[in-house]
């Protein structure tokens, strides 16, 4: 297998980040501002009161901060990469290159997540610590499980966004579709509001959807809301979603491949 080729692809996002230093810093600053705003918001909402649904204010601030910061590692532009390639026809070049299209997407996504998202997350986290008190993970095991869960979340999001991206083979335009998708993802993942605070019917719905793998599960593990054997169940759930979604992506890709010929490049 052509591992070196994939490694090169994985490095590209890091080089892009170095090339756009101002943009990078401003993006960090924006997230730090949001982290701070969320601290102020939740402090005002709790108003000195006790825990709600077993969540104390320091826990909630930790939740909101991590949710914002981990976005750097989990999020991806893979859908825009696909749209761009489909629109300008460069997808044809990807197809004649000696590597798999989906695998090359995965390589640059992972590269982006680790080499761009990682440093960005650390940078933002350090800056955030000046403004926000962060609680440590519930236990050492919880901390380790959180890291594992985060990596799985990365996989789930990659599959979801690739799915969104492949829609471009039929519509050529993702803007509206992606917008609605991100709207749903924000709420059903628990990234914006913890699922515990939402009405029961929303929680029930979220249970059956892949989105909670993105924020709710990893952060619940971190805070110890999910502990013991339930941790294994949560990780298994995330892994199962990756399997299922990857299969769906592969099927859509097979259909899309036939579609390219129709379009003629």
């Amino acid at each position: 297998m052509n591992l070196r080729g994939y490694l090169k692809l994985a490095q590209a996002p890091f080089q892009t980040m170095l090339a756009y230093r101002t943009a990078t810093l401003i993006e960090c600053l924006g997230v730090v501002l949001r982290v701070y705003l969320m601290r102020v918001f939740w402090t005002a909402v709790y108003g000195g009161g006790g825990p709600v649904e077993g969540i104390t204010l320091p826990m909630m601030i930790t939740y909101a901060t991590l949710s914002n910061v981990q976005g750097f590692v989990i999020s991806s532009w893979v859908q825009w990469a696909v749209q761009g390639k489909v629109r300008d026809g460069s997808i044809v070049i990807d197809l004649i290159r000696p590597y798999g299209f989906l695998r090359s997407l995965a390589a640059s996504h992972l590269g982006g997540a680790l080499l761009w998202g990682g440093p960005m997350a650390v940078l933002t986290l350090v800056a955030s610590l000046l403004l926000v008190d962060l609680q440590p993970p519930a236990s050492l095991a919880a901390g380790l499980a959180y890291s594992a869960s985060l990596i799985l979340a990365m996989g789930v999001n990659f599959c979801l966004l690739t799915m969104v991206g492949l829609v471009a083979f039929w519509t050529l335009e993702l803007f509206g579709f992606n917008f609605i998708f991100e709207f749903l993802s924000q709420f059903l993942s628990g990234g914006l509001i913890p699922l515990w605070f939402l009405p029961l019917w929303v929680r029930r719905t979220a249970e059956w959807l892949p989105f909670q793998s993105l924020a709710h599960l990893p952060l619940s593990i971190y805070l110890g809301k999910i502990g013991g054997t339930a941790i294994w169940m949560a990780l298994l759930k995330q892994a199962a979603w990756i399997g299922l979604l990857a299969a769906i992506v592969w099927l859509i890709w097979k259909a899309a491949e036939r579609k390219i010929i129709v379009q003629g490049g």
């Binding site: 918001f41 005002a44 709600v52 509001i193 605070f197």
Partner: peptide
């Protein structure tokens, strides 16, 4: 709607802020 739902949902649970 995103920010509206956020505020509305949280304050439905917590009733008031400051």
């Amino acid at each position: 709607l995103t920010s509206l739902i956020f505020i509305w949902a949280v304050l439905t649970r917590f009733r008031s802020m400051a």
